[in-house]
Structure formats: structure tokens, C-alpha cells
Design a protein around this nucleic acid. Structure first.
Lengths: 261, 261
DNA sequence: CAGTGGTCTAGACCACATC
DNA sequence: ATGTGGTCTAGACCACTGC
């Protein structure tokens, strides 16, 4: 698979001694990105251990045959990911973390699937309704405008886990019930060319009503996790509003926060 | 307050028509940062409305008397914050968002204070204890090593809101009980030179035990929000592990997630 | 003092979107 | 065909850290 412009350089000095870096100038993949990926995998594989210095950027760039800004761009992307720390007058070192995973916009379906829980979805409703005041406010549309309303029950191991109610703005296509039962909502949206960018969530708890308890297989009064979420695409337009309830005995939210600079 | 190098330029063209930009080259504040701040405030004040094009980077840089990379750095920082979107071949535009606030590493004390709820803290315990297995694992130290254990009850408007239990690694100073009652734990840590960087959280729910109900002023069996958190400094070392319970009737977590690139 | 990252410049060529 | 952002270069000077 080697392309024409490829070359490998063994970098010497500091903690990068002997590590091979293969930069392919004929690849459409940006050089800074190639370097960032190789540094990241070196860190994950332990070739670069926590606390190791990376060596100064000038040397690194001449040794790799790159300019300093390009090397900086690669390093910066890893700093943003929380894998490296820069200290002026000291150098760049690998972070001491046991933390590996950054956060994702948590998709319940993906979470369950990743945990090998064999998630299934039952679509209870898939219809068009006029937007109520809360939905209209969340989606930034007029009250009474038509939206798609989706009610789903999600199970794992045949046991109900969560009851999901979502509203989608009118511009969004009709959702195929069959495909909704086969995968998560976010997967479907991504496949339609929507790129999710951010979401605002409120997580709380309350006791189950008799109706909710029946639907989820809990006792009345059992603790439930509640979540309301509005998701936005990369232009900042709301693309989904949802109200979800989870059986607290079977699910908890797990996520990582980064302090913004 | 004008310093020597200051100058103001009115940028013309696109949506920046007539907006004054004051760049002070004698200031220690980086030029890209000055520009980013002024763009951000223009967006917040509505001078730049959602959907507005920013005009191309080359023109912008010559008009501002800056180089293109510097202008790009300013724009990039706002893209990272989710305020702008770049589209190749199109331009850079202001995001269509109703979303304003990025997330913070949520500090309960700060949250309550920002909401004008007049938070108060009562320190129940502040002592040294040997680390149990869960604490040792979270803080990355040996089981049985000495850690600081902190138990606090936090109230707002004179009503209890949360019961907080925290463990701090041995390297961390002794915490002054008096100051702990006057502010939040994170404020104290910041004042000691620790820069928080990230945190891993698990949020769940369960019914209150009789003891918890009594402490928080709830009925036994009432829904409680639970949170476990490990916080890390900028070198990736764990600096705090906590187990918190909140009255679900009085508190909910509110945060924003960004999809990582 | 020497070494590091932080900032900045003035160009260049390319890939992509739109008309 | 034109205009945009995306990438890259080869320098420069400064601020901070540590010895």
C-alpha cells in the first residue's frame, strides 16, 4: 500500500528514540494529521510513556522534514485531546492519565451495543403532530407547526431499559420505522448527511408513576433517571428534542468533561 | 486606557461592515486573542447575526493589518467554541444557535451561586483515613494509603440540597474547614495552583435510605440523583474522587456536550 | 544563561463549492 | 472560472523556565 512519496525516519533524542514515523506526502491525508495519529498510537501502545518528554519542536520538525508550524499543529491536536501537555521553558510531555476515552454525544443504542447488551428497539409511535410550547421552544419553530413525534421502548437482554420520546423538526425526512428498530436515531440522522455537533442535556431523577412503572417493568415509586436533550447540527440548528426516562436500576450516564480554556 | 500601539480600523465588506476592531500591539494579550474576543462580543451583542458571512480571511487580514495565520488562529478558536462554522468554498459564518454556554466542569457551589441561591456548606468531617479499594483505584494510589476524607452537607435557602463525600490524594495539603464552608472545593484547589483539566462522571439515581432521607430532609424512598466523579489536573493525575447524592426534587444536572472531531 | 514553547509574518499551492 | 478555506513553508522575535 506504500505510495510514492512515502518515507520513514527514525527520530532520535528524548523519548522518541528509534520510533519510526512514516509520512506520505502524496497522501490526501494532511501531514499534521498523519503525525498526530502516529504520535497518538505511540502513546496508546506505551511506546511513549506518561511523563516522557517529546523533545523540542524545532529538532522534531527538522528530523521529520516538516516545518515547525506543521509539527505544532499535530502536537496541538493531541493537547486538545488531553493526551499531551505543553509547558513553556520545559517541553511537551505525555499526560499522566488513566483517562483514555474522551466523551461522545452519548447514544443509548451505541452504549448498549458497545457493552454487548444486544439492544432492541420497539417503535410505539411514529407520527406527525403539532408542536406544543416546550417542543416549539426547544426546536426554535412556531407553536403548532408540524413535527415528527417518535416514541420508542428500548430493551437489553429482553428487559426494558428506557422509554424514549423524540421530536424532529419538519424539515427532516420521514423516518422508516423498520430502520428505527434496527439501529439508533443518531445513526439514521448521520446517514442522512446531518452532522451532529453539540447537545444540551438536563439529567434529573424522580419516582415512577404507575403508568411508567408498568411500561418499564418497575414498581410504582421506583427511582427513574430522566433526561431532556436538544441536539444541534454544525450550523447550530436544532435537529432533535427528546425526553427520555431510564430505569435507574439498569442504566447510568457515564461521561467525561473537559475544562474549557 | 489606550496604549501606544493601539489603532482602530473599521472593516468594510460582508457582515463586518463598520465594526470597529481595536488591536493593541503593545499589549501582552496576543493579537489573535484580542481579535477573537472582539469577534465573540460582536456575536453576543448581535452585531454579527446568525448566518452572517465573515468575509474571506485574506481581505480580513489585510484590513486588520494582520497576517492570515493570525486571523485564522482567532477564527479557529471561535470555531472550537462552536460560535462559527467554516465551509470550504463558501466562507465562515456565525452559527445559528440558541446555544450560548459551553460546558464547564460543573461545580455545585458555583451553579447554586450563579443561580442566586445563596449556597452554604456545613463540613461534617475533615479527616485522614486509609484509602479503601474503590478510592485507591480512583486516585491511582495504594490501598490503605492515607487520604483526606471530606464530608459536607450543602444547602440553598437554608434547605439541604446535597450530601458530598470527597477523597483527596495524600500530596494535597490539609484543607481549612473554615474556608471550605465559605466556598467550593474547586475554588480552593484552584487557589492552591492546581489547574483542573478533566473529569470522569457517572450519574445515576436510586431511592433514599432512611439515613439519607433524614440527612437531606426527604421521605424514605424518595428519588435521589447520585454522582461519582474523578477529577484530573492538567498532567492527568487524579486530584479528587467524590461520591455525591442530590435531592432530585431540588437539583438536576445541566450540561452541554460537544461531538469530538 | 540556554532552552523551551508562544506568537507572528508573508508568502505559496491545493481542494472544494458555487456559478 | 472564480473564490473560499485547508495546508504548508522558512524564517523571526518574545516570554517563560530552569540551571
Amino acid at each position: 500500500m506504500a505510495k510514492t512519496g512515502e518515507r520513514t525516519r527514525a527520530v532520535s533524542g528524548s523519548a522518541l528514540d528509534g520510533l519510526p514515523f512514516a509520512l506520505d506526502r502524496s497522501s490526501p491525508v494532511p501531514l499534521y494529521y498523519q503525525l498526530a495519529q502516529q504520535l497518538e498510537s505511540a502513546i496508546e501502545h506505551g511506546a511513549l510513556a506518561p511523563g516522557n518528554l517529546l523533545g523540542n519542536e524545532i529538532d522534531l520538525s527538522t528530523r521529520l522534514g516538516l516545518s515547525r508550524p506543521t509539527v505544532r499543529q499535530a502536537i496541538q491536536s493531541l493537547v486538545d485531546k488531553g493526551l499531551l501537555v505543553r509547558r513553556r521553558g520545559v517541553g511537551t510531555q505525555v499526560v499522566h492519565s488513566q483517562v483514555k476515552r474522551p466523551l461522545e454525544l452519548s447514544s443509548l443504542y451505541d452504549d448498549l451495543e458497545a457493552a454487548g447488551q444486544g439492544p432492541t428497539t420497539h417503535v410505539l409511535r411514529n407520527e406527525r403532530v403539532p408542536a406544543g410550547p416546550d417542543v416549539a421552544a426547544a426546536l426554535g419553530i412556531a407553536e403548532g407547526a408540524e413535527v415528527t413525534r417518535l416514541e420508542r421502548l428500548r430493551s437489553a437482554h429482553g428487559e426494558p431499559v428506557a422509554s424514549l420520546c423524540n421530536y424532529l423538526p419538519p424539515a427532516l425526512f420521514d423516518l422508516d420505522t423498520e430502520r428505527l428498530e434496527a439501529t439508533g436515531l443518531y445513526h439514521l440522522m448521520r446517514a442522512t448527511g446531518i452532522t451532529l455537533h453539540s447537545a444540551r442535556q438536563t439529567v434529573g431523577a424522580r419516582a415512577a408513576t404507575a403508568e411508567e412503572a408498568g411500561r418499564l417493568g418497575e414498581e410504582e415509586g421506583a427511582a427513574l433517571l430522566t433526561m431532556q436533550r436538544t441536539a444541534y447540527d454544525d450550523t447550530g440548528r436544532p435537529v432533535e428534542y427528546g425526553t427520555h426516562i431510564y430505569r435507574a436500576s439498569r442504566y447510568a450516564f457515564d461521561f467525561q468533561l473537559l475544562v474549557r480554556g
